[in-house]
């Protein structure tokens, strides 16, 4: 896999030692970019970034403020908050996709990033599934049963739908735990899966 094909993780962390440690853990699997604070993080933000690890407590622009900016810009990236205290589900209500409580171990960090990437995948499969289901309903509403039986397009659509259905039911990765479930629903209200 070439460098550019790898998922991109942006680390926004004001403690250089901590940021370096995360990078060391992640760099074999992902392209890692680093920002020292929220302002620098905003400058580095673009559509190529898949996952942001955001320290909540930073001088200058706080993690919460930066999250707002990310959501306002409608970037498809997933954001995990990194915090010193164990938060409640409320944190997911604020718009974070996941949280990590310090101190973080390498394994946890990998799990979280992997999980967020899977969730993005789940969202896009669900979106595709919906589009096909809608197309099918439109065809069914506009054509007679006899016409549908004759239609190759309809046949193809039905088998594509079956395939996606299997894919969705197999990949519970999208909503493997409570945080996934709530964050996925939050994504629906925001329309951010678009």
């Amino acid at each position: 896999m070439s460098e550019s094909d790898r998922p991109v993780v942006l680390i926004v962390e004001d403690e250089p030692d901590v940021a370096e440690t995360y990078k060391l853990w992640l760099r074999n699997d992902y392209e890692v970019r680093m920002a020292n604070d929220g302002n620098e993080g905003l400058e580095l933000l673009d559509a190529t970034i898949d996952v942001v690890l955001l320290d909540r407590m930073m001088p200058g622009l706080s993690g919460d403020e930066m999250l707002d900016r990310i959501r306002n810009r409608d970037l498809g990236c997933r954001v995990s908050m990194v915090t010193a205290v164990e938060p409640d589900f409320d944190i997911l209500e604020m718009g974070f996709d996941a949280y990590l409580s310090k101190p973080i171990r390498s394994e946890q960090l990998h799990e979280t990033v992997e999980n967020l990437l899977e969730r993005s995948e789940y969202d896009s499969v669900l979106q595709e599934y919906y589009s096909l289901v809608e197309k099918q309903a439109t065809l069914e509403a506009s054509k007679s049963n006899a016409e549908l039986e004759e239609s190759d397009e309809y046949d193809e659509l039905k088998s594509e739908i079956d395939e996606l259905q299997d894919e969705l039911s197999e990949s519970l990765g999208g909503i493997g735990d409570d945080a996934d479930f709530i964050a996925t629903l939050r994504g629906l209200s925001n329309g951010e899966e678009e």
Binding site: L126, V133, L172, G174, I175, G176, F181, T184, L185, L188
Partner: peptide
């Protein structure tokens, strides 16, 4: 909310109930 959102909601809830 629109039917797309409700459709997805149903799907996500079903998966949660499944687990």
């Amino acid at each position: 909310t629109d039917k797309k959102t409700v459709f997805k909601l149903c799907h996500i809830l079903s998966s949660r109930l499944d687990s």
